[in-house]
Design a protein around this nucleic acid. Sequence first.
DNA 1: TTGACTCAACATCCTTTGCTACAA
DNA 2: TTGTAGGTTTCCATGTTGAGTCA
Length: 448
Amino acid sequence: MVRLSYYKGLLLSDYYAPGLKWSDEFKKYIGFAYKYRDVLEYFKREEIKIEDNVLDTLPFPMIEDKITLRDYQAKALFFWNRAGKRGIIVLPTGAGKTAVGIKAITKVKASTLILVPTIDLLDQWYEKIKDALNYSPGRIGGGYDELKAITVITYDSAYTRVEEIGNKFAFVIFDEVHHLPSEGYSQVAQMLASPYRLGLTATPEREDSRHRLLPDLVGPVVFRLRASELAGKYLAEFEIKKIYVSLTDDEKKKYEELRKKLKQFLSSRNMQLDSLESFHKLVKLAGRDPEAREALLAWHTALRISVNSKAKIEKLRELLNEYNNKENKIIIFTRDVEMAYNVSREFLIPVVTYKTPKDERSEILRKFKEGKYKVIVASSVFDEGVDIPDANIGIVLGGYGTSRQMLQRLGRILRKKEGEKNKALLIEIITKGTSDYNLSKRRHRATV
DNA sequence: TTGACTCAACATCCTTTGCTACAA
DNA sequence: TTGTAGGTTTCCATGTTGAGTCA
């Protein structure tokens, strides 16, 4: 008879099993709690009897189930179920990931923990569960601290509480699961004993390649659908337009000076900037070498000039003249805060950045939803986890070189509206011949 | 309870085009 | 001659968020 137990994120066992190591401190074999399922299966295969004291879950409540899934949502859940209730479902923004998650809870019928990156999402899940299951889930984070059989928690709170609650849930849902592989959050996944796992995201891939950890932490991608596959029926038809502009003579002169400074430094040190690693090398060097710091600063400034070029503002003026009318709702996206405020001042448009106070932000979003505001400008605050009212036109003035940001911004204009005839339109304004062009090229790598 | 702070964690950050020492 | 590894243990900037603290 093997005794299995849980202790502060660890799995303790009397006998050896793959994935466990002997610990002199505990006088037992130990491993991270997430090995629980594998260890259990191993002992079963070996026909070894187990006394299992790992999970200590709260009783599953009486719930209703008012969720009707669309065909692709049901299919996604089918594949996840077939994979042993483990794995990741990839659906574009607006395709109803939350509904899939809630339906999964009703299938598993066991105590469930839902991890979310922001308080906005904490509230959204809370409301949707209340509606769909006629049950008020617990909330931990954002000032709440209620542990219930179905509980929504922020990643940050989970990080500080996981030792204590790591064995209270048989099922765990990781919303926006691309956050999970980061240094700190991945420990949360390891310290949870939950044998059933579901990850939800629109874009699992990460710039740092740590998404390679996801199959181990959550399971493989079991279902994937792109925005273009849902366009027309469940999401709006859309078009992506690219408009190219040039730097002014002044900007060009400055830009080239700065790039030259960077190049001169690189060649003086026999360095190249041809990979992320080489860039990190430069950053490291900049920590102790003033010349390297100067070079990096030059790179930053040059980037800013190209992303926030004056011609973009003029092009934006034309676009607003053309599209700013009763029929359209427009969101303008910028890369940095300064540009967002410049646009706001120039065109007298309400602006939202991370500096905007909370109530002012919700006020602006409310008025945009009601149609009192037709155009708003935002930095990268709307990229994820915020419930943004529908728009049908997005204008990208600047951004990162990541397809994640691109797809998330696209998602902001894709919600299908009743009787809508016009296509949703995402317009990107790009400064040609500069790093801005490279950024744009990079964010289009992944097919939409 | 709020509001204003601070702090920590997370994310992005590259594409040009030439090295040098050593092993196979 | 050709091919390949090379060095450590992070962190120039800016943006964004959640949690904690203190008035």
